[in-house]
Write a protein that binds this DNA or RNA. Structure first.
Lengths: 143, 143
DNA sequence: CATGAATAGTTCAATAAGTGAACTATTATA
DNA sequence: TATAATAGTTCACTTATTGAACTATTCATG
């Protein structure tokens, strides 16, 4: 198996899995929130008091795109904005109570769904798989 | 490592890799085409004379979304439409000469780019990785 | 074999997500 | 203190998607 073929198969499988997870979130967990919004919300929960710029950098998108997303999450009352008292330019993002409940519920539902597809993998295979995924992810990280 | 954590780490790494490939396609290979359009074009090349419905099913999106994509690829002269002579409802999609050249160029550039990130993986690890990816992808396939 | 159902694809209006340039407000620097 | 840089927003535009309504064609059965 040459590299060309490997990259190709990698891309096909990757795309397929990515799309399928989106579909699960949409259809199985009809959650009034998009996958992108969920990713952003989840990131904020894990990095409480982060800023728009952090998100823009993490996701490799422009700050104006983040503003739009933040607005959508704000309108749904899932996050709050809080200006820094010292540096008044900075706006910290904080997940609300409602937001935390929402993430927990959605994550649980997603786990239960994905669990099904992992049934025939051994513990070792899963560990290996995640290890490889994370190594690739780190290699691709922005410097 | 429990399942919750594994799924979580899997999702984070997966999202990150997916976004990073998009960025590579956009920045390194400034290719006048989006990642989505490239995926569709590539699918048509691999399944010559496929239909809009095939694509809609493969990518899990509605037919009207496919029409819009097909129009964009058509406007760029990368594909052609050909009605079936027997069943006049069906429209076959065919990649043009220009489209084939375009895919070959872009794929080569993408391979060269991704190759960098795979340097420290052994042949065995890559095989294992792709194998696991494809198994997961198959498990998630629509029945 | 005629008509009603199914199928393939398109159009349309709406929403989400992104870009990049221009802007506001604030802080850092020299 | 004037000028740079930084953080975030707004705006106009493009892409991708949805779902309903539509056209055209083929299938199916009564």
């Amino acid at each position: 198996m040459n590299l060309k073929e490997m990259v190709d198969r990698h891309q096909t499988a990757m795309n397929s899995i990515y799309r399928r997870v989106n579909i699960i979130l949409k259809e199985k967990i009809h959650s009034d929130i998009t996958t992108d919004q969920f990713s952003t919300l989840n990131y904020i929960r894990k990095h409480d008091r982060c800023t728009s710029s952090d998100i823009a950098h993490e996701f490799g998108i422009g700050k104006s795109a983040v503003t739009a997303q933040i607005n959508r999450l704000f309108d749904k009352e899932l996050i709050e904005r809080k200006r820094d008292d010292k540096d008044r330019r900075v706006v910290y993002l904080i997940v609300t109570e409602k937001g935390i409940e929402f993430v927990n519920f959605t994550e649980k539902a997603l786990h239960e769904e994905l669990e099904k597809y992992l049934k025939d993998f051994s513990q070792d295979e899963i560990s290996m798989f995640i290890n490889l995924l994370e190594r690739l992810s780190n290699n691709m990280e922005d410097k």
